[in-house]
Write a protein that binds this DNA or RNA. Structure first.
Lengths: 194, 194
DNA sequence: GCAGTTCAGCACCGATCGGTGCACAAGCAG
DNA sequence: CTGCTTGTGCACCGATCGGTGCTGAACTGC
């Protein structure tokens, strides 16, 4: 009994997920969230508890929606297909047209709100500069025949930088130095990588 | 002429760098920063301008300090040594004892302040769960002889997850789907990776 | 000594944060 | 219709944000 709710809680949760995805937890203010969800603060609290619980539910929805590739990949018949499907699904989820770029699981504490946009852009540029330096160096290596003539300096630089970026996320999650060292060794087992 | 400043601006900048490194730009409040620097807000503004400029100077100091491995690696004689030194330096900088873990260039917009700690931990756990599922699946592959008996499921899972994490950072920086696809192909060119 | 200049500390600014009390409207059971 | 419950919107809470005006002390050149 009582008055039924006048909005679609599931649709509202999806809107909230998008805001968290593109702005991160701290960067997403209650005003941002409720405006996107099209409901009042009070309705949000009544329906979802508080901001933290809303975030958890948004993450769960992400896992079942854009992040469903994880469980799908795990069902592949061979280990190689698991890895291939996992990475392919990750790529797809990271670059869905009409959706925020990147992964909510990383982005959620990587993206920033309005006040942090400056720092976000500064760091994106900083990483791009580092990658550009690598690319130029590998370009030189091609010219010096240190790398094969058909090697792709841009790809190699991006590959190495991707490993480094990934290791930074791993380290933020508590990975030990020896863990990372073995990852790097694995990445360099085949050289040149392309 | 005039009264000289009573604190070491360079030491203060280093303290600020550490706070940004472990708490991110938005997560580092002026109170956090000035307390760590041991100076008043007014002194900070007089010496560094504002929070944004302080962040830029802290990033520059990071580049010249813990991040100096980048320019060092670029001077290596061969491309392979460049890649090896770059990754090794990245690992070292990500896991310096007595310093924050991870990379300021990623962390600066990844880590969060007090209010975001909950989300940060939630996401760290979320990523760890995904990696654990991968590990269990690769463990099964070893038991099924789909992977060699000496394959290391933990390492393979961490390697794949590191690529995925790195691609998420790349995507947040604007990488296209095709760019990421080639990175993933590169990572899977040698299989099994260990 | 003096005058000039700059530093440091405190209180305070408006804005925004996450979260809530209250009045009222909307729908239920009888 | 009358009670009763519950969703909704508005105004507002204390806390904190980045940033500043003011006061006085500390140091310089003369």
């Amino acid at each position: 009994m009582g008055r039924p709710r006048a909005f679609d809680a599931d649709a509202a949760l999806e809107k909230a997920m998008v805001i968290f995805w593109e702005q991160g937890y701290e960067g997403a203010s209650l005003t941002d969230l409720t405006e996107a969800m099209g409901i009042s603060r009070k309705s949000m609290y009544a329906a979802f508890g508080n901001k933290e619980q809303l975030f958890r539910k948004a993450l769960q929805r992400y896992t079942e929606g854009p992040g469903a590739y994880v469980s799908q990949a795990l069902q592949a018949p061979t280990a190689r297909e698991v890895a291939t499907m996992f990475l392919a699904g990750s790529i797809r989820a990271n670059t869905l047209p009409g959706w925020p770029t990147g992964c909510l699981g990383v982005q959620g504490a990587l993206a920033v709100g309005k006040t942090g946009r400056i720092a976000h852009d500064t760091l994106t540029e900083w990483r791009a500069h580092g990658q550009a330096h690598l690319r130029e160096r590998f370009q030189r290596a091609v010219e010096e025949s240190d790398l094969p003539a058909d090697a792709d300096p841009d790809l190699i630089a991006r590959f190495i930088m991707t490993i480094a970026n990934g290791m930074a996320v791993q380290a933020a999650g508590g990975a030990e130095r020896e863990d990372l060292r073995r990852v790097a060794d694995t990445a360099l087992r085949c050289w040149p990588p392309a």
